[in-house]
Every structure is written in C-alpha cells, then in structure tokens.
C-alpha cells in the first residue's frame, strides 16, 4: 500500500540523514528517481519554496512528496515517517547517555560522516544542476553548444554575491526570479 511505502521510505531517510540542513536531499533525489513520485523540476521548485516559507527543508520536502503521491494523508504520513526514527533515538540518547556527543567513537563516526554528507549534497547539486545548465544532457559530443550560457552566467553571479554578502537566502532567490522574468529564462 502506498501509505506504508511512503512511511518506510521516509523512515529510512530520517534514520540515515545526519548533519542537518540539506542532508535529506540526496535520499529524496534517489527516491524520486526510483519511484517517479515527483520530478527533479518539482524538487528544485520545492526547495525554492522551502527557502521562502517557514520550517525545515527536510520536513517541507517530505510533506510535498507525500502530498503529491497520496494526497493530504500522504503528506502527513511521509512527515511522520521522517521524524519517527529521530524521536526514538533522541529519547534514548536523552535518557541513557547525555554526554553522547562527546564520546570519542561518536566524534570519530561524525568526522567520517560530515565530509561524506558534503559529497552527497554535491551530488544533488550536480544532478539538479546538469538539467538546468545544459540544454539537453544526452548529447556529449557537442558539449560546448549544449551549455546554457545564460544559466551559467546567472549561477556564477549568484555564487559570487552569496559568498561576498552573506545575506538571507530569500534575497538571492528573489533576485534570481527577477532575472528570470527580465531575461526570459
């Protein structure tokens, strides 16, 4: 049944996404690749909406994927699936080992997980980026002609501004949206 599958897929994501922020994205990206629940386009739009609405991105994306797959109840079930493992684990940690985060093995595990998560999120950027930055991703011989220069230039400018001014993400998204309308992306 779709509800059970949604619950367990998001339960798995909740169990293995460590390091916060966008850590759920590599899992979600593979999930939609496997089941086709939403498209990569939708995922990008959804991240944009998440950045501009309150609440954690992971939760917002789970609600969105769940809703699109199985309606309102689907959204609720995917979200509950995502948080179930962490609620259980947090309760155990809070109860038994409050110095948990200082344990050398936990520190060791995290020192391995953190760079790996960065690599996984780089994968998401690559997967989503290749659809936006290239006109068609199939034709490798003619790669220069396939590059969407308009998009590449906007990306470079945005990256520069983000690093230079460190303002709230919404500002950059609004700016990118205005550029999109003016230059008809």
């Amino acid at each position: 049944m779709i509800y059970i599958r949604l619950y367990f897929e998001f339960f798995k994501i909740g169990l293995f996404s460590i390091g916060g922020g966008l850590a759920t994205l590599p899992f979600v990206q593979q999930l939609i690749e496997r089941y086709g629940w939403i498209t990569n386009e939708d995922l990008l739009n959804m991240i944009a909406i998440s950045e501009s609405t309150p609440g954690p991105i992971g939760i917002n994306v789970a609600t969105f994927v769940g809703y699109n797959t199985a309606g309102t109840l689907g959204g609720i079930i995917a979200t509950i699936g995502l948080v179930t493992p962490s609620v259980i684990i947090i309760l155990l940690v809070a109860h038994y080992f409050i110095k948990f985060n200082q344990h050398p093995l936990v520190q060791g595990g995290l020192s391995g997980i953190r760079p790996a998560v960065a690599g996984l999120i780089a994968f998401v950027a690559f997967e989503l980026g290749k659809e936006e930055l290239f006109l068609s991703s199939n034709n490798i011989q003619d790669i220069l002609r396939e590059i969407n220069f308009q998009a590449v230039i906007l990306l470079a400018i945005l990256l520069y501004l983000i690093n230079r001014y460190k303002k709230h993400p919404i500002l950059y998204l609004v700016g990118a949206g205005i550029a999109g309308v003016i230059f008809k992306y």
Binding site: L22, L25, E41, L44, N45, I47, A48, E51, I121, V124, A125, L128, G129, E132, L133, A151, L154, L155, L158, L159, I162, P169, Y172, L173, G175, A176, G177, I178, A179, G180, V181, F183, Y185
Partner: peptide, 10 residues
C-alpha cells in the same frame, strides 16, 4: 531563474 538560485545556494 529561481531554480538557478537554488542550485547556487546548494
């Protein structure tokens, strides 16, 4: 345009 912005943020 915003999608490019999201990729930049990621």
């Amino acid at each position: 345009g915003i999608k490019i912005g999201v990729i930049a943020l990621i």
